[in-house]
Simulated assay, not measured.
Amino acid sequence: MKIEELKEGIRNISEPRRTGYGNIRHKLEDIIIIGLCTIICGGEDLADMEAFGKSRQEYLSKFLELPNGTPDSDTFRRVFEKLNPSELSSCLINWISCERTKRGTVAIDGKTICGSGNCKHKAYHVISAFVAENQLTLGELAVEEKTNEITAVPELLDLIDVKGDIVTADAMSCQKKIVEKIIKKKADYAIGLKQNQPALYKDTKDYFNEFCDDIPMKSTLDKGHGRIEKREYQ
């Protein structure tokens, strides 16, 4: 991943600070890149960003301007509070996508983040698009509940480039709008089918029953996530 490509993307992000007063001491790209590097290296909060920037200032100055040194934690807070999250997300997704050398499989799945819930809110649920061939997460969206995956998947597809890919998803994504969105993005798909689509499920089952003698079958038995799953493939 080239740092200059990331800088170019950051320049398309709206400047959240008041630029007419002449009191901006740190460049937006410096703040975002230091924050990103901090998180990649295991940092967790604004104080970590300041500490990381100061401890690595000599190295960071090789590709960042840092006209007034490293921003402090208050500067990181003010900027990240006002940044447009959609613009930042789009910038990072486009930057990561540059690393894709070939088309392949994009797996869309939702996971509940353990330990993220408390007495004030439920645990966070995140929809992600993962590229198996490159081991890259192309994009993520947070949703309030698992049932909101149906509306979130088309939004996630709008953010990423899947042209020429095979998009995979579980049976919850077996919806007309999701399939139409995948086709519109010029991708193929392999989506699970269960009885949440009763008519299609029945038609598919009847078709396989009619030709079952000519189609090989494979069964697997797996244990995980507190349950035993038996799967049959045709």
Rank of each mutant, 00 (worst) to 15 (best):
I3Q: 10
I3T: 11
I3E: 12
E4P: 03
E4F: 09
E4Y: 08
E5R: 06
E5C: 08
E5L: 12
L6N: 02
K7F: 11
K7H: 09
K7S: 05
G9Y: 09
G9M: 07
G9C: 10
R11A: 15
N12H: 11
N12L: 15
S14P: 11
S14L: 14
E15P: 07
E15A: 07
R17I: 06
R18S: 15
T19I: 11
T19Q: 14
G20W: 14
Y21E: 11
Y21D: 11
N23K: 14
N23V: 03
N23F: 11
N23W: 09
R25Y: 15
H26N: 08
E29S: 07
D30V: 00
D30S: 02
I31Q: 00
I32K: 01
I32H: 01
I32V: 07
I33L: 12
T38V: 03
I39Q: 12
I40D: 15
C41A: 13
C41T: 02
G42N: 07
G43R: 03
G43D: 03
G43M: 07
E44A: 13
D45P: 01
D45S: 05
L46W: 12
L46Y: 15
A47K: 10
A47N: 10
E50I: 01
A51I: 07
A51C: 10
A51F: 12
A51R: 09
A51M: 11
F52Q: 00
F52W: 01
F52A: 01
F52S: 01
K54Y: 08
K54P: 06
S55E: 10
S55W: 06
S55L: 14
Q57G: 09
E58L: 13
E58W: 08
Y59I: 13
Y59T: 09
L60G: 12
S61F: 14
S61G: 13
K62C: 15
K62W: 13
K62P: 09
F63P: 06
